[in-house]
Amino acid sequence: MNEGSGFRQGLSIAFRLGIELTVATLVGAGMGYGLDHLLGTRPWFLVLGVFLGATAGALNVYRIAQDFQVEDEGGEKKDRSDPEDPSGKSD
């Protein structure tokens, strides 16, 4: 049962990454547009929403890729903290 596991995981990641990025940007833009509509502050929340959405999308993709990388290294659990990450801890 585990033979095709790597292949299946690869496919599922391939299907996930692109859509995750796009949808998060769209959701951010949509929420910004909605806020503008409610508060009458067009177009500022829309602009903010697009940027926040794109950030959220990039963050999601980064997390998925990170999970995959840890699995890829096979058992040997790498410390996930990134030396360049100022918080010293991620995820």
């Binding site: 299907f15 996930r16 859509i19 995750e20 949808v23 998060a24 769209l26 959701v27 951010g28 929420m31 929403g49 926040l52 959405g53 950030t55 959220a56 999308g57 963050l59 999601n60």
Partner: peptide, 17 residues
């Protein structure tokens, strides 16, 4: 806000995919 967006994006990306 970023986490809220990525939370709301989950069901949408799930259905759209």
């Amino acid at each position: 806000p970023i986490e809220i967006i990525s939370m709301v994006a989950r069901p949408i990306s799930l259905s759209v995919r």
